[in-house]
Simulated assay, not measured.
Amino acid sequence: MFPKNAWYVACTPDEIAEKPLGRKICNESIVFYRGHEGRVAAVEDFCPHRGAPLSLGFVQDGKLVCGYHGLVMECDGKTASMPNQRVQGFPSIRSFPVEERYGFIWVWPGDPAKADPALIHHLEWAENPEWAYGGGLYHIACDYRLMVDNLMDLTHETYVHASSIGQKEIDEAPVNTRVDGEKVITSRFMDGVMAPPFWRAALRGNGLADDVPVDRWQICRFTPPSHVLIEVGVAHAGKGGYEASPEHKASSIVVDFITPETDTSIWYFWGMARNFKPEDQELTETIRVGQGKIFAEDLEMLEQQQRNLLAYPERNLLKLNIDAGGVQSRRIIDRIIAAESESDSTLIARSAS
């Protein structure tokens, strides 16, 4: 259903600032917490004593203490101690590779031996002081691939987001889709249009007139396992569009990290990074709130879509030219899953021989 030998965003640092966090990732129940010297750790959310969730416990001296009977767990999944008990024979629980980077905590739910931190793709906007970022988290009851479809085809903006970023010109502009290795890029450019409400506000936020024609762009980039970064923006018409100088445009990167919880639910880490007026915290919060409302408009549609697909599994869905980005992204996901499955089968065969 989803690749496991991959880095997924598990949570943000603030979520484990006060206590452990239990979260299911790719059908794995995991507890995240800060262990020795404040380093992030992740182990199965399962106490080897009586099966209680370790996430209901607390951290003491860099170790995770079960909130049921006081069993103390090391970051590597081995039991360190338990009141009045000898723990040498206690079974270990699974630990997971984790990395804290770019303002997120990443987890590798697959084979730990393959967990190379260098595979976390570089996020320039997260390290460059010329950029500002604001975002949030939604839990959505849908297959993660439905969200990938949604983000790789922005035609729905005209209808789902009519009051914020939608406009009829989105329907009318041709879509270009290309595959670059394991990445999929879809792009749409609209010249000489009037900016919709969200982008009028962004123009004003950058000190630009909002009542003149603009050139608008949307460039969606899918990277496996399920990350979509979208370059979006508007520039005063005739100033170069996507290539316009900063003083003539308002542009951003829509950040979408889609982490499967189960086969039919996701943790959706959303946000927007911008490279104009990064020091303006009030503008960052205004954009974050506005963006959050836009993303919330997708929730009901995706969850109802998921219910329909579960109710009618025999139905074949149409694949149109506007769906090419999602279709190509799914093909890449399928290839990765198939390769993982083949690798697992080979290991099993070798073990049996």
Rank of each mutant, 00 (worst) to 15 (best):
Y268F: 15
P196A: 09
P225A: 12
R221N: 15
G238F: 00
P246A: 06
A173P: 07
V193H: 04
H248S: 05
L208H: 06
K239L: 10
I294K: 08
A201W: 13
E243N: 13
A173Q: 04
G271A: 12
V234L: 01
R274T: 07
Q167Y: 10
F189S: 04
R204N: 09
T223L: 12
S226D: 05
S187A: 15
V179K: 09
G207D: 04
A173T: 15
P225I: 06
I287G: 04
Y268H: 05
L203N: 01
A244L: 12
Q291H: 14
T259A: 04
R216W: 10
I230M: 14
L229R: 11
G205K: 01
K249D: 01
P225D: 05
G238L: 01
P278H: 06
S187E: 04
F276D: 00
W267N: 06
I230C: 07
D191C: 11
M272K: 12
Y242Q: 11
W199L: 05
S251T: 14
R204D: 13
R274M: 07
E282R: 11
A250Y: 04
I165M: 14
G205A: 05
A235G: 01
E261V: 14
A201L: 15
T286A: 12
H236R: 13
M194S: 13
E279H: 15
E247A: 12
H227E: 11
R221I: 15
A202R: 14
H227R: 15
A237F: 09
V234C: 04
D191K: 13
V255F: 11
T223N: 10
V179I: 10
A250N: 08
P174W: 08
T223Y: 13
S226C: 13
I294T: 10
N275G: 06
C220W: 04
Q218W: 10
V214Y: 00
A201C: 08
P224L: 05
I266D: 01
I165Y: 08
V254N: 10
R188T: 02
I165V: 12
W270F: 11
S245G: 12
R288M: 14
P278K: 01
S187W: 01
G181V: 14
L229K: 07
G205M: 02
L283H: 00
D256L: 12
A202Q: 05
A201Q: 14
G181F: 12
T264W: 11
V179P: 02
G271L: 15
G205R: 00
G181R: 11
N206R: 06
E261C: 08
T262I: 02
E169S: 15
N275Y: 15
K293P: 10
R200D: 10
V289M: 12
I258K: 00
T259R: 01
A202T: 05
F222G: 03
E182G: 06
R188D: 02
A209N: 13
G290T: 08
A209W: 13
T259E: 12
G292N: 03
R188L: 09
W199G: 04
